[in-house]
Design a protein around this nucleic acid. Sequence first.
DNA 1: CTTAGGATCGCCT
DNA 2: GGCGATCCTAAGC
Length: 188
Amino acid sequence: MENVIAGIDFAAPSDQVAQQLIGTLLLVNGVGGRIVETEAYDRLDPASHSYAGPTARNAAMFGAPGHAYVYLSHGIHWCLNFVCREPGHGAGVLIRALEPLAGLDAMRQRRGVIDARQLCSGPGKLAQALGVSRAQNGASLALPPFALAPAAAPPPLVAGPRIGISKAVELPWRFGLAGSRFLSRPFR
DNA sequence: CTTAGGATCGCCT
DNA sequence: GGCGATCCTAAGC
């Protein structure tokens, strides 16, 4: 399988991929928008699900790059990650927020809210709006239902510490589109 | 605007 | 049996 999708080499380190993903168009069954917020996770990263090595849950993280890793958070919300690095490494990028551009009605129906800014401003919200769940775990990002398209131009980036973790808190591995109104939280 | 608590379940120790 | 890479609501300043 090809590691390059939408002009991004998913075999690269996750912090690089996380930055390159900002501005990328992400669609799931035609519903989605452009990615405005990501977080990188890596092996040897205490905050990463892959830190303790391969398990049943994180198996996709140790699979081929350019595939999805989907997990259930707090028994309630699904979260979507893109696998990076070479197979067996255990790295990924959490897709935290996107600017809704396609399938707004489907998103509103799934989310139960109307405001476009509340549709995909967080990893759990995003997965719900795009209809992502366990069914997509391990799926290739190069094939339906996924569709990725490169950003029109390299967007202005901001970086900061990751959100909602208790380990490796100081690592500046959260990336965002500068000035976007669709972030899960503003950058300090 | 900031903070606190509850919901809810699969995974790992 | 404990604990989240979360979200929503309610209450406090």
